[in-house]
């Protein structure tokens, strides 16, 4: 023992040192750090789970959005189609209206023209009667006084036929 340097005092001192170190290290180093490590493990696990959940939620949200978007697109397409349809109908209507208007204007114009013609014819008839009468009177003198009425009508009807 003496040759190997074993000294009871030193041995007991070293044993106290070891016991002191076990106490000190477990109190101030091991326990706090192991608690911290397990706490951290727990937190990391939690946050990973949280992240998974959020990711799932996001995927679901995106799917929902896609569905929603498709619906909206469809709706827009149908609205557009409707609008086009309506526009076509309206266009047709407008064209028809315009055509009818044109027809009407044409008809009016024709009616006016006919009316004018009639008026002119009537006027002419009046003037022609008097002109014929005058001309005939000039040519024949008073000869015709008795039955000139009949003559006038005759000539007028002939005129009308030529017309």
């Amino acid at each position: 023992m003496e040759k190997l340097g074993i000294n009871w005092g030193l041995l007991i001192a070293q044993m106290f040192n070891v016991i002191f170190l076990v106490w000190m290290l477990s109190r101030f180093l091991f326990n706090p750090l192991i608690n911290l490590l397990s706490e951290r493990t727990k937190r990391v696990e939690e946050s990973l789970q949280e992240a998974d959940k959020v990711r799932e939620q996001m995927a679901a949200q995106r799917k929902e959005n896609d569905v929603e978007l498709a619906k909206a697109r469809q709706e827009a397409a149908s609205v557009m189609a409707q609008a086009q349809e309506r526009a076509r109908v309206q266009e047709q209507e407008i064209i028809n209206q315009a055509r009818a208007e044109a027809e009407r204007i044409k008809a009016d114009a024709r009616a006016n023209a006919e009316q004018e013609l009639d008026r002119l014819a009537a006027e002419f008839k009046n003037q022609a009667a008097s002109l014929v009468t005058e001309t005939a009177a000039k040519v024949l003198g008073a000869e015709l006084k008795g039955n000139h009425k009949q003559l006038i009508d005759e000539s007028l009807s002939r005129l009308g036929r030529n017309n």
Binding site: L4, G5, I6, L11, I12, Q14
Partner: peptide
């Protein structure tokens, strides 16, 4: 490298 310490341990 001292037997006192290793023996204590």
């Amino acid at each position: 490298a001292d037997l006192n310490m290793t023996l204590a341990l």
